[in-house]
Nucleic acid binder design. Structure first.
Lengths: 341, 341
DNA sequence: TTTAGGCTTGGGAGCGCTCCCAAAGGAGGG
DNA sequence: CCCTCCTTTGGGAGCGCTCCCAAGCCTAAA
């Protein structure tokens, strides 16, 4: 009968007590180097690993943070955005030696059971919530619990939450000014869903930039749902208004828009300039290469983790981190000569 | 001073004992309906949630399964494959009311610390390991522990492990026969890395199919690294051999290959037929639409979870689940008229 | 009436750890 | 030489739960 391998047993083999082994495992002070050496030898020899659940229970901290992505996941996951975000978050959690738990809500009645797992005590120390829509009840719900959380994006009631966002508004404004500076006079907009704050911000930022440049958009606005298909449809519709430029609120929709332009027998950037938002689709994937407003997704993820650890540690005055964007000028806007095509 | 909300406290408020509340929470038998009603009322009123860590410690099961994706993650994540896989796994874990923990190994010396978290007792009940390369030490390491695990893919030493894979070999063979059936006589291959079993299987399956059809491939083989860029380079090199057909071992590499064909002034499928493997890139993204061997990624993920739960429950004779693939004939092979282009 | 057996309930023990305090030993200053 | 203080070590208590067993109660059969 092999007895269970726990602190007590390791201690027994090393001729010390449970407490001393615990101090060695946790790098605590007040352990003589001789004792430490002996205990570490036993640990190496036995392959002892502390029991995570026992540790969580005793220390009231799990070392796990949750990432919550609600609703419509299936379509969202075709977007490289989430992959990048997860990457950033994951690399940050690894760095602070924490574990990442992923909560994806599909459509369906299972939501409430997932929610209750998310906020259950003793599973995660805190939560990063992303892809929320305007008025998302999830945010209110989280605020009703004592679970520390950070929002990626800008919730409506941002005042009372910690959040990390990119400056969608300024980025879109830059796109407008860039197009105007290129001499375009009939700008169009393929907006992102207006039930998301990112969608709203990118739209208003673009309109603001146009106004500054003395341009108006008239009826040249269509709204997509982030999907490539919706971008293609929106562009096809907009072409009837004969725009000479279009700002597309996401890379994926822009890929669809380029396709619509091509299918209409028009040429980008010759007939129409395209600027998109995200900077996530590899430039070489499209012809012409997309000019886009690049957002630092990975950094957003890393920062969200750091912010969350601060909240877990007790930070209480809501902090809003806003990352700047950067305009990457490539071929689709027409500012530089088009290669190949 | 508000006392902590635990089983004892809920019991106190409902006028019953800790044990009885526990039975109610766990849907156990032997509770009178009156008592049950009263306890549930208190739970609803107080918003009580069982403490996950305490539960794990006492029951020796955490309700969490880990997904391990080692090495080179940054590039891998541009591939929709992993998004789909995670989706399938996540939906299956939700269904069985478990939580998904994600372990992404970046390059770097942090690997060992992540590994030790993965196999630490009391964190996860079992692990799904994916994206392993041939001779991956991770598999050996897992076998050295008592942590239940399932491999997505076919490890070298598959005999002794539970795994879920797709029939890469048969799928690639089908592609070869399809191309041969189209009358192509100078087939080429853009293979996936030969340090992966998927890469090896797809290569040998394709060659097997060619042999059956009486075709030989001669020097028309190049190897990519899954990336689009590598597909483009490989195709550019292969064009010197004047192939009239090419099988590309992944969708992403195929997108690159199409680009190389276009850049060389050639036409697909007119000058060269293309068949790819995966069926993951949305068909409309490319022109012409890719004919590909479709693998059921989401199902693989779901099945991996189900298999893992069986292993956790005590299954001990290694089981190998192999999913069939399906050839989706679209435009790039030339079997059907090309739309648009 | 007695006894057996079912249903319901309560409470002890224990999961493996951390936290805290007390005890033991050694060094250094008065 | 004694007292103080610091370092090192051990062990009790407790985290919130599950598991198990015993006790109480009630019903039904003998």
């Amino acid at each position: 009968m092999t007895r269970p391998l726990n602190l007590e047993e390791v201690g027994r083999r090393a001729g010390v007590s449970r407490s001393t082994v615990s101090r060695v495992v946790n790098g605590g002070p007040n352990v003589s180097s001789e004792t430490k050496r002996r205990v570490e030898a036993v640990i190496a020899e036995t392959g002892y690993r502390p029991h995570a659940a026992a540790r969580s229970l005793a220390s009231n901290s799990t070392g796990v943070i949750g990432l919550v992505i609600p609703s419509a996941v299936a379509t969202l996951f075709d977007d490289p955005y989430f992959g990048r975000l997860i990457l950033g978050i994951s690399s940050a959690t690894n760095e602070v030696d924490m574990t990442l738990a992923l909560f994806l809500f599909g459509a369906g009645p299972d939501e409430s059971s997932i929610i209750s797992r998310v906020v259950a005590p003793g599973l995660v120390d805190g939560v990063i919530v992303t892809a929320t829509t305007r008025g998302d009840p999830l945010i209110d719900h989280m605020q009703g619990t004592s679970m520390p959380f950070v929002v990626v994006g800008r919730p409506d009631n941002a005042g009372s939450t910690f959040c990390v966002d990119v400056d969608n508004r300024a980025g879109a404004r830059t796109a407008a000014l860039h197009l105007a500076g290129l001499g375009r006079r009939r700008p169009a907009l393929i907006a992102a869903p207006s039930n998301t704050t990112a969608g709203v911000d990118r739209r208003s930022g673009f309109l603001e930039g146009l106004a500054e440049a003395g341009l108006s958009i008239e009826d040249r606005i269509a709204e997509g749902d982030w999907s490539q298909e919706s971008g293609r449809d929106a562009m096809a519709r907009l072409l009837a208004e004969r725009p000479d430029a279009v700002f597309v609120a996401s890379d994926r929709m822009a890929v669809g828009a380029l396709r619509a332009i091509r299918e209409a027998g028009l040429h980008c950037p010759g007939d129409i300039s395209v600027v998109s938002f995200d900077g996530i689709v590899p430039p070489d994937l499209t012809a012409p290469r997309l000019t886009s407003v690049v957002q630092p997704v990975t950094e957003v993820g890393e920062r969200a983790v750091r912010l969350l650890t601060a909240v877990i540690a007790g930070a209480s005055t809501p902090e809003h981190v806003v990352f700047p964007t950067e305009l990457a000028v490539r071929e689709s806007c027409g500012a530089t000569p088009t290669a190949g095509a």
